[in-house]
Amino acid sequence: MFQSSLKMCVRLSSTSREGLRRISSSIKPVGAHSVRSKPDSLKQEILEYRHVYPEFLPDPKFEFRNSVREKLERNDMIARRQNIDIPEFYVGSIMAVESSDPHTPGKTHRFVGICIQRGGCGLRAHFTLRNVIDHQGVEVQYEMYDPTIHKVDVLKLEKRLDDELLYLRDALPEYSTFDPNMEPEILSEGTSVPVNTIKVKLKPKPWLERWERKNLQGVQDLELDEKFYKKAEEVATPWEKYDLMKEYMRTIPVEEQTEIYGELQTKLQKLNAQGKKMKRKRVFVKPTKLA
């Protein structure tokens, strides 16, 4: 499993420029001695948290860093997570968010959509959901630690081939249309997160961005003139992935990640156990049928 995640990591780092800013890809391949000792496996388990809870890693910009602030921020995040179960999700997962709305007092507002973007760190962490409702594309950006959010459900846990799915805005509407009354799909425990390799068909130009320059994996042939691809090749900066200094500046070192998640581990495990208990309880409750 770790091998696959490592591959994923390498692939992500090769495709991404902005998306996974906080995730360090400077992990040494463990290979043979991965199962040798227990502390190593524990370390790996801790390091897995960076995919599940990326927002616990601070902003790597060194001029904004302060250890006391980061600690206080994490404490606040844990305090909020004790009131609300924020499950594991990725860009490409289909989610439902229930939040209270000042214009409909006493009720909650539910929005279902595909997660097209995830970003921010600490209490500023946010994600964007997209859906097409009545032939109109709708996107809502939610802040993960906003106290007006009542519930975050993952209806379908999966990843896509790209870190950001902003190109769905220029894709045919059927690719971002999801049933608001969708039933949640439950994955059996222990399975890795499936990757949806669907290739999206984009509408013809004009687009919001020059998608041919973004090195997208999850789109079908763009059907452009040769000159566009030529220009894209000219502008591309394929050497950046080898720039170690840049890599260092935009990531949190592994040592620091293990320190941060090591501190959080017991709290996160407790939260997870709580979440599972709640899930089990929910399983036993008979679903009420809508009219």
């Binding site: 909020r80 000042p102 006493g106």
Partner: peptide, 15 residues
């Protein structure tokens, strides 16, 4: 100010 350990904000109908 809403404390992070407080329960989720609910808008009151009466207000």
């Amino acid at each position: 100010i809403h404390s992070f350990s407080d329960p989720t904000v609910v808008y009151d109908e009466s207000k």
